[in-house]
Design a protein around this nucleic acid. Structure first.
Lengths: 360, 360
DNA sequence: CTGAAAGCGCTTACAG
DNA sequence: CTGAAAGCGCTTACAG
């Protein structure tokens, strides 16, 4: 079919008011729910307004509503990138949840250039967003405090390290605790734990869950079984190539991990930093003739769809991004509509869940 | 640090006009570039306006600009879902490109419910987007014609089947042509081609490229080497589970493919439908004791980061989503600023590129 | 360059 | 319920 390239004239509130023969205010009350409880429109009239609005294809002008101080029903969504492999499910769920609550989502990529985080914050301000959801990794640049100052209604994924900030976090200690227990139940005795930096809170949490599970089973905690990526491993984290806009994953660090934990320490299980570490581990172990799970069990962390494609399929910890997204949007809605959230409701912990497949 | 939860008062155009002691019009001209060429502000004054605007943290109110008919600098981006595994790179690149041209991106998920496509089109209308980028798979529901009618400035990824519509497409015939030639050069003689439906244009294109490469090398085209997913294979396509919001990939169809093409027809190579088919193929072949690439070569289609995690790493065709995204945004910008695009510029073909890894 | 005014499409407060 | 008016922050056309 052929399509005409004319910009269609939009129907306005006043157009349908004139057509029905009522005031704009009545139309506004019926269609947009404005005016509080003061306005009472007869049921007959209300129905007619609805009917005419529908037949004329009325769509309220959001810019106009926004200008008079109504909610924009727009959320800013800060992400590393729309295709962020570690958080693409989270991003998707956040967007779904926002939409389910009647909001639009303005997506802001931050990973392409160091100043993009702050630029997007400005943009969100211009755009008059009601609130911001921040799913950017803490290890990426960006002024979180400025974000919070400009947009008090902001909910983070993971603790941004700002006092009283609202955030949702996965129970990392609980996650590793589950994984460790699972491995112990499967008869593993020398369980390795792969971490990045020693000083990071997230990594300390994981270590805590690990130690606790060991002690509950009266197993000795051996520091030699904990692997830390050394500073020379620049590829310890997922990285984003700015030119191709593609993500890449650790490689060399994995061989080091195999040498130090699997070979030197005779580990019979590894809890990996994430599913990508785990997938690479499986590949490299396979090349060295070490069998998974016969010789060694591997547990991932995330539950990306990648886990179905490793051979064997990866047992992993599902970080429950759907629950996290629901919590984040729910918190944000509360902050926007009500007053500020009481302190004890500003930090929500989401429970992860172990998914057993074939690698353990 | 503690954060105050007050909504900050935004600086307006008039505020900085008063501060500097000039008219709003001058400020508008200097800061927003309005008023055409009529307005001439002295260089001194202009600099002072810039300085004061910066010091006061002025941010133009986009809703107000939009209301008086200026561009909203907002694009609608229709996607299956933000985490769409087949197009997440495309989505990311589209967003990047839009931002690079100074636009905001309103993301619209469509896969959660059948009416979401059309709902999002309405939403885009309300939001006053300048144009729409549609990256939704053609096999998903949604009224493309209504989209095009409401938003004449729309660019599709892949031909939506509407006359004169603007779209960017990958050269599918060229892609399969490259893959086939590559396999022939590597000494393969019985090259299988895995397709979905016989009647789909996209699949016919692939077949064309396949046949052409064969005939160029004087190889006989054998229809038995072409696999079509039968209607019973409901899992031939990537599917999105509405409850978990997660995607899943074909499984059973792959075993059928192995039986019919690899075993019955003794294929020594397979060009898969996409990287997911290819990854699953590699896994299943491995279980059957068929070695890749010793016994059979496998080529994927997409170049997802998944390809690095298969064992062996997957040779695949990079669909060049970055180039596609650049083209799409460039077309859209032209449509928005100028008049309608001449017919011959409405359909752009992007060239894919074979990436050799280990599976061939 | 300036000021004063009108208008974009809505909501709200006001007087009936 | 109504109409007439003011205002949100901007741009534009108008008269100087």
């Amino acid at each position: 079919m052929n399509v005409e390239f004319d910009r269609p004239k939009r129907v306005r509130l006043v157009d349908i008011a004139e057509k029905v023969g009522v005031s704009r205010r009545s139309v506004s009350a019926v269609l947009l729910g404005t005016g509080g409880s003061r306005v009472s429109v007869g049921e007959e009239k209300a129905k007619e307004i609805q009917r005419v609005a529908k037949s004329m294809g009325y769509q309220p002008n959001l810019a106009a509503r926004q200008l008079v101080g109504k909610r924009s029903h727009t959320f800013g969504l800060l992400v590393a990138s729309a295709g962020d492999p570690l958080r693409s499910f989270l991003i998707q769920h956040l967007d779904e949840e926002a939409a389910a609550h009647g909001n639009r989502t303005l997506i802001g990529n931050t990973v392409v250039a160091p100043d993009r985080f702050d630029k997007n914050v400005q943009l969100f301000t211009n755009s008059g967003v009601d609130g911001v959801l921040c799913a950017v990794h803490n290890w990426l640049p960006g002024d979180r405090l400025a974000l919070l100052t400009q947009h008090p209604c902001t909910v983070f994924y993971e603790d941004p390290g700002i006092r009283d900030a609202c955030f949702v976090s996965v129970d990392r200690a609980g996650a590793i605790h589950q994984a460790t227990r699972h491995l112990i139940e499967r008869g593993r005795q020398r369980i390795g734990l792969a971490l990045t930096a020693k000083s990071k809170r997230s990594q300390k949490d994981r270590l805590r869950g690990y130690k606790q599970a060991l002690s509950e089973s009266s197993l000795k905690y051996e520091p030699e079984l904990v692997f830390y990526a050394s500073p020379k491993h620049k590829d310890a984290y997922a990285r984003h190539d700015v030119d191709s806009l593609k993500w890449s994953f650790p490689e060399a660090v994995i061989d080091d991990l195999i040498q130090r934990i699997v070979i030197d320490q005779s580990a019979d299980a590894i809890i990996a930093q994430d599913d990508y570490w785990a997938a690479t581990l499986i590949k490299r172990l396979h090349r060295s003739g070490i069998r998974v799970p016969d010789d060694i069990s591997i547990v991932g962390y995330l539950n990306h769809y990648l886990t179905d494609f490793t051979a064997p399929a990866l047992t992993t910890i599902d970080l429950n991004h759907m629950a996290a997204a629901k919590e984040m949007v729910s918190m944000l809605e509360k902050m926007i509509s009500g007053d500020s959230l009481p302190l004890e409701q500003r930090q929500v912990l989401v429970q992860p869940k172990l998914i057993q497949r074939e690698s353990t």
